[in-house]
């Protein structure tokens, strides 16, 4: 991103950096899973509509019930 000189430009680039960091943390936490699912669904060109957000998260944790992921020491 090209920041304009001056305090406004600095503020702009700080805000941009913060947004980037927030997006990164979201990715690490897996908060963007639904968005990625929608992207995948759109790219695959299924005839069926995608799951809505509530159903997607429900399905996600319910599948973890029978498919546990290890966490390390």
């Amino acid at each position: 991103m090209s920041a304009a000189p001056g305090p406004a430009g600095l503020l702009h680039s700080v805000a941009g950096a913060f947004r980037g960091f927030a997006r990164y943390v979201q990715g690490v936490m897996g908060a963007d899973a639904y968005r990625k699912y929608l992207e995948h669904h759109a790219a695959e060109g299924h005839g069926t509509p995608p799951l809505d957000e509530r159903a997607f998260w429900r399905d996600r944790t319910d599948r973890q019930d029978s498919n546990p992921q290890g966490r390390c020491c």
Partner: peptide, 15 residues
């Protein structure tokens, strides 16, 4: 779109 999802390398590093 659920278990098999291409993930940005830096995000996956943190994950």
């Amino acid at each position: 779109g659920k278990d098999y999802v291409r993930t940005d390398r830096n995000v996956l590093f943190g994950h």
